[in-house]
Design a binder for these strands. Structure first.
Lengths: 300, 300
DNA sequence: GCTCTGATTTTTACATATAAAAAACCGTTT
DNA sequence: AAACGGTTTTTTATATGTAAAAATCAGAGC
């Protein structure tokens, strides 16, 4: 059966909205809330009905009013707001990064389903995702083969990444001066400087900023294959950031400066400079990833 | 329940092998046959047991002998050898190419399952494949959106294809002179010339040759992302070949000559010439695809 | 030892079943 | 008539069930 993660997520998001509302105030219409929370009116009604029974809101004719401010205890635990699919993908990545799986290892979904205590249907459907990422290879009527993450895999990914990012950076430089991307670049640059000013406490915030910058650049390619490919990079990086904590502050410090040089190059619109700064940064990023992989496969 | 397409395919392939065997001859061991037919020994035993009961083979101690030559009536119909998944993918492509689906059209899998008379599970699992190809967009808890095949989509694909194929062609030129790919290229070239000699009758065989040449070149990239991307190209082309029959002979004639120039460029190992010939051919191929798309979206 | 076949166990592919969520439908009210 | 809330219908996500196919086990013969 389906877990009610959509309901629970909407419920928590609704509480967040209500936290900024004065008690006694009238709530928006159901359809407005549905649009706002990104779910169907059916789910909104389920949430409102739940909030009524816990006494957070009360009916007033055909409308609803906030009865009291929501408390921390009114929220569903964060873990219950994750959909089964998202949980499978997260757990799978953690599983292959933490367990020691050599490339070539066979993975059967019956066993995985038992280990993750879900159904084989959910496993099958979501492992297909990693098949597309190149992490798994599906062999019909048989077990899946775990293929990476090896140094070769990283090299292949980076070969594509460099092609795509250079192309995207060129496109970025060609954007009209009034394009929204330029002001987003300004904001990102400012956040880089703020992060550098507090590097000692905030160095862990780098990865989110890294994602934002590179995604902005890739978006300029206007090519869905390029944009989708960044999802692969992003996923691989996301999980490896969690693994390799060695010299994290120093690495992020260097990367922040490389980003600033890259941003300046984009602003100059000089393709040669852009290529140079982009390549320099990607080279460092690849080195970091290869280091993480080496650390994981050959822990000292 | 699972269709026995694996069994039926193995059964037909086994009959093909037996057609070249003298009656009375001893069959290979079960495990040898399994390896040969690419299925498990369990399936081989099921096939052999079936062939025994139809009197095509007979037991001889612990071995088996061919009793009579197989007839056309002994084969399972071709349609039954297609797995459910493959059938769903093929039928879906035919459905979107033949029906008039404008980009943005919503597709729900419940309806598709009814139309294709399979289960929603099979539909869901295989539509995910087209999600990865960029033909569909999955919207959680809701219907799928059909995105292409539009002119924009073709342009995006060709942007990537050009990047990947130029890179692969360079790698191809750098292969050692004794690499197997060079002799495969010789064979492909010879087949091009043979096809050109009989262009009037055999022009339809071009698409298979096209696939072989480009796949050979992409393989030289040694990059699984590049190789996998060619699957997308291949699929799009495969279905559009079936659609656009206008000037087919002339188009294939031109393409064959472009291929020969491209092959000669690869042999010269001169990167400039390779780039020129590769670009020229891809430009024509893109034009053909765009024409097919236009023909489909705006039939005269 | 290795290779073969026969029998048993496990896994995969897919159909079916069902709660969660979306969508559609339908009077009311403004 | 557009917006709203109540109700009903349909669809999605996923758990469960099962035939097909793979994998494993076990004994026989060389």
């Amino acid at each position: 059966m389906k877990s009610s993660s959509v309901f629970k997520r909407a419920h928590n998001r609704c509480l967040n909205k209500l936290a900024g509302t004065e008690p006694g105030a009238l709530l928006p219409a159901e359809s407005k809330l549905a649009l706002d929370l990104g779910v169907s009116r059916t789910t909104v009604r389920a949430v409102l009905s739940s909030l009524t029974s816990t006494g957070i809101i009360c009916r007033d004719g055909s409308g609803r009013r906030l009865a009291r401010r929501p408390l921390a205890a009114d929220y569903f635990p964060e873990a219950q707001t994750e959909s089964t699919g998202a949980a499978v993908e997260r757990r799978f990545m953690e599983w292959i990064l933490q367990g020691d799986f050599r490339p070539g290892k066979l993975i059967n979904c019956a066993e995985l389903a038992r280990q993750f205590s879900t159904s084989t249907t959910a496993i099958r459907e979501h492992l297909a995702h990693f098949n597309h990422f190149g992490l798994l290879e599906r062999r019909p009527n048989s077990a899946w083969m775990f293929k990476g993450i090896t140094a070769d895999f990283a090299t292949e990914i980076y070969e594509i990444r460099e092609m795509f990012e250079l192309r995207s950076a060129h496109r970025f430089a060609e954007l009209a001066p009034d394009a929204a991307a330029w002001s987003e670049l300004d904001i990102i640059e400012r956040e880089h400087r703020q992060l550098l000013a507090n590097i000692d406490e905030r160095y862990r915030d780098f990865s989110r900023l890294d994602e934002r910058l590179h995604r902005l650049i890739h978006d300029a390619s206007q090519n869905s294959f390029v944009v989708n490919f960044y999802d692969v990079i992003s996923m691989i990086f996301h999980y490896h950031y969690q693994w390799n904590k060695a010299d994290e502050k120093e690495r992020n410090f260097v990367a922040l400066h490389e980003h600033l040089a890259y941003i300046a190059a984009l602003r100059s619109r000089d393709l040669r400079t852009i290529d140079a700064k982009c390549r320099a940064h990607l080279k460092t990023a690849r080195k970091t990833l290869l280091q993480s992989i080496d650390l994981r496969l050959n822990p000292d």
